[in-house]
């Protein structure tokens, strides 16, 4: 709605805001999403006009939005697991420009992944970055990264020194959900078998603890180490919330020894298959399986009853 020449009074705007709020909720309750969206837009405009009328400036302050990385779950992050039914439309995610002069996101992810040394989820990547590297790395911004990288690789293969790519599932060599790796790693390291989630966790624990030993302690680092120590037998030796990196490394190594052999064998076998079956893009970004649907569907039908 374009603003009318005779600007409405704050009281009129308040009445209008109340009216529009009701309209939005009525529309949502009736399942009419389209109407709800339209009213919602008008509502935001009216709220903006109220701010302007009452407070006399248009901007909502300096919208600094770099800090959605931790604590606050970003809407897109949980979208994968969202229940299929009613899901209220999240408020439009605030889009802030990357602060100028900083390292681009993919470079920052690369730094964090190099430090971790194993396939990792956006959340861990963000925490590691926050603990050891300058600035922030919002986890929410990592979700579309892999797709961008794949597009870039397919249009100009190996044009970049490295790509941020997928971990491959050991059985189907398909992209594993929610894990990022670096293209320059050995293929074995980028495979994810049944035990790999655990061995990668332990590997990351060791590498991060080693890194922490070489640096001054900080609350962020302690918090990060605690996440590992609390979930590795024998790693939490001191008071709750405090971690001695050496003890964490020893405990993680001890458990890693239990799984490493089997995990390595499964990964090697899968990597061999990947080398034999997949082209370059497939090896980096995973096999596409949509064609399999019908095939598996039939076997399913046969042994069904």
């Amino acid at each position: 709605m374009p603003s009318s020449p005779g600007a409405p009074s704050p009281e009129e705007l308040e009445a209008r805001i109340a009216e529009l709020r009701t309209a939005v909720r009525r529309a949502m309750a009736a399942g009419d999403r389209q109407a709800a969206r339209a009213h919602r837009a008008e509502l935001r405009a009216a709220e903006g006009a109220w701010d302007e009328a009452v407070l006399g400036d248009t901007a909502l302050g300096d919208t600094a939005l770099g800090d959605t990385a931790l604590g606050e779950p970003a809407p897109d992050e949980t979208a994968d697991d969202a229940p299929s039914g009613e899901r209220p439309a999240p408020p439009p995610p605030p889009r802030a420009a990357v602060p100028r002069g900083l390292v681009p996101v993919r470079e920052r992810v690369h730094q964090a992944l190099t430090l971790i040394g194993a396939p990792a989820a956006p959340k861990l990547i963000a925490s590691v970055y926050a603990a050891f590297l300058p600035g922030q790395l919002p986890a929410a911004r990592l979700t579309s990264l892999r797709r961008d990288e794949e597009r870039s690789f397919r249009s100009a293969p190996y044009a970049r020194p490295y790509y941020l790519c997928a971990a491959l599932t050991a059985d189907l060599l398909a992209p594993a959900r929610g894990l990022l790796t670096v293209s320059t790693w050995p293929l074995e390291q980028r495979i994810s078998g049944p035990l790999s989630a655990r061995t990668d966790f332990l590997t990351a624990a060791i590498r991060i603890a080693e890194h922490a030993e070489r640096r001054p302690d900080s609350p962020d680092v302690q918090r990060l180490l605690w996440r590992f120590a609390a979930n590795i037998p024998g790693a939490a030796t001191g008071a709750v919330g405090t971690v001695e990196p050496g003890a964490l490394i020893a405990a993680a190594r001890a458990e890693l020894d239990v799984h490493a052999e089997t995990d390595r064998r499964q990964r090697r076998r899968a990597a061999d298959r990947a080398r034999a079956q997949l082209d370059d893009a497939g090896r980096l970004f995973g096999a596409r399986l949509r064609a399999m649907r019908s095939a598996t569907g039939t076997t399913d039908g046969e042994d069904d009853r």
Binding site: L172, P175, R177, P194, R288, L289, M292, G297
Partner: peptide
């Protein structure tokens, strides 16, 4: 050991 059955590769079809 952890197996994610939420999708088969990139295929989220129910039968698969």
């Amino acid at each position: 050991a952890y197996d994610d059955l939420g999708a088969v590769g990139d295929n989220e079809g129910r039968e698969v």
